[in-house]
Design a binder for these strands. Structure first.
Lengths: 206, 206
DNA sequence: ACAAACTGACAGGGCATCCTGTCAGATAGG
DNA sequence: CCTATCTGACAGGATGCCCTGTCAGTTTGT
């Protein structure tokens, strides 16, 4: 297939391709959230995106690559709103963490499909678990860092802080997952309050 | 196929059938741990068990049923060693929880395949997640209960305790998963110590 | 207007798995 | 010893998805 770039519908070739990729990514997120990983076939993604299989291979080499890209996109967005919220909030580390939690919970509340991909479907396959683990790890570090600046000498030593951060991040992820699914009946602010309290609890050494 | 029960090889029909089922369950656990959920096909399970496909349908109606049964078996075993350890250990609730953690960690250390099924592959499919969630929930309740008897008035109210228990159980599950995979370099007793400290932390209200 | 590129629809081969059926050899009970 | 049952091996159709190729119709640039 000879690829000679040309504009079409008033849109450049690069923009069209990028647009199709974005459509496919959104469709992948939607199918993942609605149908689960095993039913997220190339055919299903293309049908949801309203594109034919040929354009799938334009953006992704395989079904797995699309799924990984979808999770990456969601993970980056979640991490970014969290980091942004921390950067925008001054003062008390606990307040900063509450702001980050609020931002993340708001995101997954307004886009449950993204939340579902991030905390539910993200452990479906080995390849996805690598991403999930990396995301949890970055949150764990962030938590450990805030814990240190919150309690100083009263905080856990660095090695322990990493472990506690991981347990905290994974636990909150599960809590959010249960909340999205409806297994935990809490208001949004109660969810954030519980997670904030838990942060204080795991951050301080006794 | 007419089924007339008769002994064979000095073993009754019921015992032979039960033996095959046990073989298939063990094989399912092994394949799940080695190959992951998506590669745990009926063919692979049968090959690992050394049995032919016909006998698969004698015990299970589908691949999914076998996988669920395998996870259930592992979950029951883990929950049972935990409960047993708590029952066998008197006095301080924190000590009892440490005993339970030691028992569980010992089990997954001696049988990493079972550990892998319980904490890694258990979130691969929606059907498995139901089991995982139930298992986490029972641990969460157990944790909440011990927390209450440890701190009394200083413990969190019941509703919060459930949430904290879930976060704790899920966090520890992730920690154990990371430990099994080798992402967390800790001795077995350090792992138990960290988890015990965290229990105390999430149990007490400040 | 015309050729080339772009797009969407769809067909069909390839592959892995599920699931059923057959068949020969081994074993139990009369 | 002989027949019926049990067992393991394997064959083959059915299904669902992957992936490539074709084709007709639309849009662009000359």
């Amino acid at each position: 297939m000879v690829e000679v770039k040309r504009s079409y519908g008033g849109v450049s070739a690069a923009d069209r391709s990028a647009g199709r990729r974005a459509k496919l990514l959104e469709a992948t997120i939607a199918v993942l959230a609605d149908e689960g990983e095993s039913r997220t076939t190339m055919t299903a993604i293309c049908a949801r995106a309203g594109l034919t299989e040929r354009y799938f291979y334009e953006s992704f080499a395989s079904r797995d690559e699309a799924i990984v890209a979808a999770l990456d996109a969601v993970a980056v967005e979640i991490a970014s709103v969290a980091v942004q919220a921390i950067a925008d909030t001054g003062g008390d580390p606990a307040e900063r963490l509450r702001a980050a939690l609020t931002a993340v919970v708001s995101l997954v509340a307004s886009r449950p499909d993204k939340g579902r991909v991030a905390v539910v479907e993200s452990s479906a396959t080995p390849e996805l678990r690598v991403r999930r683990h990396a995301l949890l790890g970055s949150f764990a570090e962030l938590v450990a860092q805030e814990a240190d600046s919150l309690f100083g000498d009263a905080a856990w030593p660095a090695e322990r802080a990493k472990v506690h951060g991981l347990v905290y991040a994974a636990g909150v992820a599960e809590l959010v997952a249960a909340w999205i699914v409806g297994d935990v009946e809490l208001e949004q602010d109660e969810l954030v309050a519980a997670a904030t309290d838990l942060f204080v609890a795991v951050a301080r050494r006794h």
